[in-house]
Design a protein around this nucleic acid. Structure first.
Length: 547
RNA sequence: GCUCCCGUAGUUCAACGGAUAGAACGCGGGAUUGCGGAUCCCGUAAUCGAGGUUCGAUUCCUCGCGGGAGCACCA
């Protein structure tokens, strides 16, 4: 790798000049006219060397001498040393791009678990789940692409007061024989309303809740079993539609029992009693203090998460367990993680609780069948209709791919942790900075490649100048690596948009078919297509052949 | 009250402590017999405030202002 080579050379040059304490590093200049790689060591080392940055830069350049693959080295600005790579370097790289382009081995041998798409069974799958699924899916794919063995898991909430509310309403309205997802959604809304309004309903619902916890046989249990199966099926259906699939599901009903047992076993060393409940004193660690077992002895979310860790590590023993959640749960999971690490150090060390931002709505409203949170499928249908209208797309399969691209791109465009403002008129973009823009660039590239059937004979005419597309293309593996390192899919999003823009500009300027560089240009287009396809895959976006 | 996160063009997002703060949408202009106009090109416009650290700060630290979130028996 030329990066390592450069760092090594810079390091030797610094040593030769007797400069200590300066980290030899290189970076991609944001501006391509500044070269392919740049180093700031002359700026950082000038003080130690007792000279000006530019003078030091000159000495360093003299010391570096010839470097394989580097055509030119120049000093610019306050004292940056810029490296411009040779024509041959790029031509060779471009020709080497294949289907596995961008894959890395950094995580080779690592066993990673990604937990996401957490549904609440009996409650509808809404837009927040859509966001969570998009982020989780991308993190999963990026890790896999970097060489890890990845398993996707989901942790549905299958037993709660909310579930009891839905069941109560189903029983009350005798809906159990023709139970559907829609009926359950309505039942949930109805049950929630009655729980607030009627004392009697509240009593009955609480009784159902207890019966569920004790797995007591009866009408409620029967409806519960039936509804749960239906919900799991629905979950699999919708996540498959989004392009995700799961290796395993751990249920809250399982984790609760185990969690309670673990918490009790670690009281009073880790947990302690307070006002009848079992708590973890997070404040001793600068965190929140939270209840793990209620005074009735029931496990709450906290204890269930401890139980889940036990289940996960027993089944998979992962090197890393990533849990993707909403940013609002950040401080909550800090407490869980701290408590977990006191019970079992590995649970803490090998766990990463990763948060994405929260969706905020702006502009136009979307009708939601239940409550005021848009449902995933309603939203998707709406986006599909916007897409097919805007682009006059007639093939529904294509519209679906484009709509999903638009949504996922909007979700993965920004850095994690920040809230995402979702505006119907703007977020459902098919132009410019958008998922469909990337897909469209890919489709155009495929179009050219399909037009030329005969394989090249290997004799290339290569232009003297290196285009920006070529320069950007060679950066792809580094971008993927960084994305995996920092768990940030948005580096890929940003990069692909930059790349597509460079490609489109190049494509508008250069004639490919019939040019004297045709054979080589086709290689560039081919390399672009591979990169785009792999990059989109990492974002969970399909690259259509037509649109 | 305590804790955490955020503050960049009119709007939505970028910028691993570096060079002239990048895009997109919007707005105003323009392009193509050359392969897909969901494209391309030109213009317009921004770092919340005050200190500090640093050769260098949108980025790190402190304070202030503004916004969001979390803080015991819900999930």
């Amino acid at each position: 790798m030329i990066q390592e080579d450069l760092i090594h050379k810079i390091s030797s040059a610094l040593k030769a000049l007797g400069i200590d304490g300066v980290e030899p590093m290189i970076e991609f200049p944001g501006d391509l006219t500044h070269g392919d790689f740049a180093t700031n060591v002359a700026l950082a080392g000038a003080k130690v060397a007792g000279t000006t940055p530019r003078e030091l830069a000159e000495k360093l350049v003299a010391e570096l001498g010839e470097i394989e693959g580097v055509e030119k080295v120049n000093i610019a600005g306050p004292g940056f040393i810029n490296f411009i790579l040779s024509r041959e370097y790029f031509s060779k790289k471009i020709q080497g791009v294949g289907e596995t382009w961008g894959r890395g081995e950094k995580l080779k041998g690592k066993n990673i678990l990604v937990e996401y798409a957490q549904p609440n069974l009996f409650k509808p799958f809404h837009i927040g789940h859509l966001l969570n699924t998009a982020v989780g899916e991308s993190l999963s794919r990026v890790s896999q692409f970097s060489g890890a063995t990845v398993r996707n898991i989901s942790y549905p909430s299958d037993i709660s007061l909310g579930v009891a509310k839905a069941i109560w309403s189903i029983l009350k309205n005798k809906k159990e024989d023709d139970l559907t997802i829609d009926a359950m959604g309505e039942a949930y809304v109805d049950g929630t309303k009655q729980y607030e309004e009627s004392e009697e309903a509240k009593k009955e619902i609480n009784a159902i809740h207890t019966a569920l916890h004790t797995a007591e046989d009866g009408d409620a249990w029967r409806v519960y079993q039936k509804g749960r199966a239906l919900n799991v099926e629905y979950f699999n259906h919708i996540t498959a539609r989004l392009g995700s699939s799961f290796d395993h599901m751990f249920f809250e009903s399982e984790s609760g029992v185990i969690g309670k047992e673990i918490v009790m076993r670690h009281t009073p060393e880790v947990f302690q009693e307070s006002e009848g409940a079992i708590i973890f004193k997070g404040e001793d660690y600068g965190l929140h203090t939270r209840v793990f077992l209620t005074s009735q002895g029931l496990p709450v979310y906290e204890a269930k998460d401890i139980g889940l860790l036990s289940l996960k590590f027993e089944k998979y023993n992962p090197d890393l367990s990533i849990v993707v959640t909403d940013v609002e749960q950040k401080q909550y999971f800090e407490v869980v993680k701290k408590a977990a690490s006191l019970i079992n150090k590995t649970w803490g060390d090998n766990s990463l609780y990763w948060q994405h931002g929260r969706l905020r709505f702006a502009g136009g409203k979307v009708s939601s069948r239940y409550g005021n949170v848009p449902l995933a499928e309603d939203l998707l249908e709406k986006v599909i209709s916007i897409v097919s209208e805007k682009a006059k797309e007639e093939d529904p399969a294509v519209s679906e791919k484009v709509a999903l691209a638009s949504l996922k791109y909007a979700f993965l465009r920004g850095g994690s942790g920040k809230n995402i403002v979702f505006d119907f008129e703007k977020s459902v973009a098919v132009e410019g900075d958008s998922g469909p823009y990337l897909q469209y660039s890919y489709v155009r590239a495929r179009g050219v490649l399909d037009k030329v059937k005969n394989a090249n004979d290997g004799s290339f005419n290569v232009p003297k100048e290196v285009s920006n597309v070529e320069r950007l293309l060679t950066r792809f593996p580094s971008v993927v690596a960084r994305s995996a390192d920092e768990y940030e899919p948005h580096y890929i999003t940003t990069y692909l948009t930059e790349l597509a823009s460079a490609f489109n500009s190049w494509y508008a300027q250069e004639k490919v078919i019939g040019s004297k560089y045709e054979a080589y240009y086709l290689q560039v287009v081919r390399a672009f297509a591979h990169t785009m396809k792999n990059g989109l895959w990492l974002l969970g976006i399909e690259a259509p052949e037509k649109m």
